[in-house]
């Protein structure tokens, strides 16, 4: 995950600023900081079965505010990439309790292009 994301996960000192500013935490089973914590503790399995990486909108709020310069969006992307490589499908949005916000298409479009250009 470190290799794929290019991030030093040891740099995270668990200040929780990512979680504090994330708009999607209410629906997450693992909080953004907990995703990094699980990896720090070697509990990648927890992360791989969590729905958090799929809820991450890549809005980059956490990246902008992280005092240690850890790019959590890239870590989320790395997790998604690993899952897709294993052939695991992402969560079925229509089947979940989570309702896609009305402005989702634009947001997905913007984040998609950010991801591709970043």
């Amino acid at each position: 995950m470190e290799e794929l994301s290019g991030q030093n996960l040891n740099a995270c000192n668990q200040c929780l600023k990512c979680t504090a500013g994330c708009s999607f935490v209410d629906n997450m089973d693992l909080l953004p900081n907990q995703v990094i914590r699980c990896i720090q503790l070697g509990q990648e399995d927890e992360v791989m079965k969590s729905k958090t990486p799929w809820l991450c909108a890549s809005c980059f709020t956490c990246v902008t505010r992280c005092p240690k310069g850890v790019d959590l969006s890239r870590i989320m992307e790395a997790i998604r990439t690993l899952l897709l490589r294993q052939g695991k499908e992402h969560i079925n949005l229509s089947g979940s309790e989570f309702k896609l916000p009305a402005d989702a298409p634009q947001q997905l479009f913007v984040s998609g292009s950010r991801k591709l250009s970043g």
């Binding site: 929780l16 504090a20 500013g21 935490v25 909080l31």
Partner: peptide, 12 residues
Amino acid sequence: VWGADMASGKKV
């Protein structure tokens, strides 16, 4: 104020 609390594992 948007913060988080580690002990409860919640956004505050």
